[in-house]
Design a binder for these strands. Structure first.
Length: 358
DNA sequence: AAGGCGGGGTT
DNA sequence: AACCCAGCCTT
């Protein structure tokens, strides 16, 4: 299909605007695939302002793909602590080892091979392929959905299979084959700075004169989305033990929130529990097998709001009638209380520790 | 095709 | 309070 003149015009406008208005960012225009890859993964579902410092610290701690591949997963997760979507860190780490083993330590340079890496989907593969290797693949992220749906008044839902296909085709049609990397960054930057979700800055937009949504004054109707997820409420009861300067933690290993992060011993209940319900809870004696008597003291209640879950967390201090609690270290990891800061934990646990030890 | 996975900023 | 962010993976 021959590219239409209007498509070339749009790309030219985008790139001219980009040249003047682009932000200076540490990963911008790097031709090191590792740098671009790490930045793209950090920026998945994450704003630049939120990921910026994480990127700098991550690159300082893991300067190249070898150092990342050599690292312990715990250390990678620690560098990711607080950023969320921790599968990104686990996959990034696994993919670094993939590159060392399957690609002999050289980051793959074809779109197909990049796509084989764990945690790399269509978006990230297109971003790295175009920005680093100059390959003509269009990025289709949240920014692009927004810009294109407004520009062409596309009412197809972006969270449908047909919609993804249509938007990818549209992005392909306007893609600058000569400089796909610059074009891709330009359209994303416009989405981030001008064509924002609410109150888009149409008065500053270089595409105003060719934007259908602007012409119809219905920018807020785009993009169309059908699904909305209702957050699920969960009740976590954490048990904080501290004996002789030691505390006990465990690793969340199930496919659930915060997989492979650390936390205190936990009982999750169907409903909100209180001190008395937990004292009699059969799970409590199971959790601390050998204990004769268990004394609980409620310390803190935190409401942790996420986009797909609301976690109501109660924290209890635990003491036992017997001084020596052998057997506890069989189920849990016994560590000096002060060294919990060396382990990757969720924001929820972090908030608790901050409150208690302040 | 649908649901799960974090945390924080903007309006 | 609702929305959504340089998405990906599993079921």
């Amino acid at each position: 299909m021959r590219k239409k003149e209007s498509d070339k015009l749009i790309s030219n406008i985008l790139q001219e605007w980009y040249e003047c208005h682009r932000r200076i960012l540490p990963w911008r225009d790097s031709k090191d695939p590792y740098v671009v890859w790490v930045s793209e993964v950090i920026l998945q579902q994450t704003r630049v302002s939120q990921g910026y410092d994480y990127f700098l610290r991550f690159m300082e701690k893991f300067p190249d793909i070898k150092s990342l591949a050599r690292a312990q997963e715990d250390d990678v997760l620690k560098a990711w602590q607080g950023l969320g979507y921790y599968s990104r860190a686990r996959n990034l780490h696994a993919a670094a080892r993939q590159v060392m083993e399957k690609f002999d330590g050289v980051f793959p340079s074809s779109h197909n091979d990049i796509l084989l890496l764990k945690g790399v989907g269509e978006y990230t593969a297109a971003a790295v392929a175009s920005i680093v290797f100059g390959l003509p693949y269009p990025v289709v992220d949240g920014n692009v959905y927004r810009v294109l749906s407004r520009l062409f008044a596309i009412e197809e839902p972006i969270d449908s299979t047909s919609g993804k296909k249509l938007f990818t085709e549209t992005a392909t049609s306007i893609l600058d084959q000569q400089d796909p990397g610059n074009h891709n960054q330009a359209i994303m930057e416009l989405g981030a700075l001008i064509c924002t979700p609410r109150l888009p800055k149409c008065q500053d937009c270089p595409l105003q004169s060719v934007c259908l949504a602007f012409e119809r004054k219905n920018m807020s109707d785009f993009p169309v989305k059908k699904g909305k997820t209702i957050p699920k409420i969960r009740y976590f009861n954490y048990f904080h033990i501290e004996q002789n300067g030691y505390t006990y933690i465990q690793k969340r290993e199930h496919p659930d929130i915060w997989k492979n992060l650390y936390e205190f011993p936990l009982i999750e209940t169907e409903k909100q529990s209180d001190l008395f319900m937990l004292q009699d809870h059969p799970g409590l004696s199971t959790l601390f097998q050998a204990a004769d008597e268990i004394f609980l003291q409620h310390k803190l209640r935190l409401r942790h709001v996420l986009s797909h879950q609301i976690i109501l967390a109660d924290f209890y201090r635990v003491e036992f009638s017997k001084q020596e609690m052998s057997g506890l270290e069989k189920k849990f990891i016994k560590i000096p209380a002060t060294s919990i800061s060396e382990y990757p934990v969720s924001r929820l646990i972090h908030k608790y520790l901050e409150t208690i030890y302040r």
